[in-house]
């Protein structure tokens, strides 16, 4: 049973309209896809037909199409099109496995539990958060969170440790690091910011600092 837990899996701005993307959470492969109109979906990365990864598929309007035989799936998961049998209405049993997905604080979050009850981490107002960048660290999520919190503690400002690690910077900028447990050997860390540094120039600077943080952690 997957834990009832929300994990950030991408920066919202990096999951483009009409794209399907491979994401791994707790060893489980997810196809994170966004329709032409902007709706985000997190599905098991597996076509119900032949098991092909749906993250290799393509988005056509509001449907995700498998790269293998072109089967098309609507956001409700139902197969709607089978190109080899254009006159057939696909049976209801052909359905992709969907997972809970939310957009907040400039991040995309998924919860793989069958019946999610947990609340998203609370970072206050949703408005104003902008993407900084994602990094991937060697090691499990506990180790990565400890290392990131430890590094941020050396920056100017005040660190709050939690599911999401945040740093209040002297100029009033708030930097947040949200964690994606990939597997025992890898963790994604997605950084977003809010406040005075939420400009193009500020994002460049913070993104460079985050790369330096990654390098320090890996060289330790």
């Amino acid at each position: 049973m997957p834990p009832d837990q929300w994990n950030a899996v991408a920066l919202d701005s990096q999951i483009r309209a009409s794209s399907s993307n491979p994401v791994i959470v707790n060893d489980y492969a997810v196809a994170l896809w966004r329709s032409a109109s902007g709706q985000v979906n997190a599905w098991e990365d597996r076509c119900p037909h032949r098991g092909m990864r749906l993250s290799l598929g393509f988005v056509e309007g509001e449907q995700l199409r498998c790269i293998y035989h072109g089967w098309g799936y609507a956001p409700d998961g139902q197969c709607r099109q089978i190109p080899a049998h254009p006159d057939l209405t696909p049976p209801k049993t052909i359905c992709a496995r969907r997972h809970a997905v939310e957009r907040r604080y400039g991040l995309i979050w998924t919860n793989l539990a069958d019946d999610p009850q947990a609340a998203l981490p609370d970072l206050g107002a949703d408005e104003g958060w902008v993407a900084v960048r994602s990094i991937f660290l060697t090691g499990g999520v506990q180790e990565a969170r400890k290392a990131v919190a430890g590094d941020l503690a050396e920056w100017d400002g005040t660190v709050s440790d939690g599911d999401v690690v945040t740093l209040e910077m002297p100029d009033g900028t708030r930097l947040a690091a949200a964690f994606q447990p990939v597997d025992a050997g890898s963790t994604g860390v997605h950084f977003v910011a809010r406040g005075p540094a939420a400009t193009a120039e500020g994002r460049h600077g913070l993104a460079r600092q985050v790369v330096q943080l990654r390098n320090r952690i890996e060289n330790n």
Partner: peptide, 13 residues
């Protein structure tokens, strides 16, 4: 895989 490289994925597309 391309899982760890979101900017590369967008550029490839």
């Amino acid at each position: 895989g391309h899982e760890e490289y979101p900017a590369i994925r967008n550029w490839l597309r």
